[in-house]
Design a protein around this nucleic acid. Structure first.
Lengths: 112, 112
DNA sequence: TAAATTTGTAACCTGTAAGTTACATAAACC
DNA sequence: GGTTTATGTAACTTACAGGTTACAAATTTA
């Protein structure tokens, strides 16, 4: 698995990875603790975590023989910017519709 | 290609599909017009468009022998909700940090 | 120091996403 | 009606993501 192939969008495309991010939003956890809550094997979870780390969604802190995963905002920014673009698209779309309605409903110029 | 396997997150995971969405944000376009702007074959683009349609990111209107693609807000909502959750996470995180700093900086109770 | 715990990773298997080419179909145009 | 244009889709190939098992390494604990 070549981590360099991954970007933010691919990182959150996998349901297991999104589940991991959710779990970490309630509490930072060690890799094994995370793996225990999954139906897939520990190495599989380990790979997912590596993807999330390499794409900036989490950081990992060594604590003795355990490694704790913590959410990292950096990974989310690319997605956020992408969403912002389209949120804006829909907003301006709505505004121009609004303007159109206002115009066609506005009182006609009084003749004379 | 079984379209039913796709969800919103997978839909936007592919760079070509994101590019199509961008293109459509400037102007609605026919499928062939879209395909002409790509390095991949027309059938490949056609498949991407099918994915975007089945996941609610675009709708398709028949106009004579052409089919025009138009952005559809529905597809974006799932992503948006997901982002909202984590935006909120970071906001409350920031707030509690702020509260903590305020507290530790607040003037100590005057003795006596 | 030996045993248990936590994690990393190599080697392998499998399904399928994403691309291709070739052919079919339907509308528009002459 | 025959040709051109726009699109759909079937059949096939290839790369690789995501899973597994097995083993290694490092730290903690007894």
């Amino acid at each position: 698995m070549n981590i360099s192939n991954y970007d933010s969008f691919i990182a959150i495309a996998d349901p297991h990875r999104r589940q991991i991010l959710r779990m970490l939003s309630s509490k930072e956890q060690s890799i094994n603790t995370i793996a225990e809550n999954f139906d897939i094997s520990r190495p599989a979870v380990s790979k997912h975590i590596k993807v999330l780390e390499s794409t900036g969604f989490i950081t990992i802190e060594d604590r003795g023989r355990e490694r704790y995963c913590v959410l990292d905002q950096r990974g989310f920014t690319e997605i956020q910017e992408w969403m912002n673009y389209f949120e804006n698209y829909w907003l301006t779309k709505l505004k121009s519709l609004d303007a159109y309605l206002k115009k066609s409903n506005s009182p006609k110029k009084r003749k004379r």
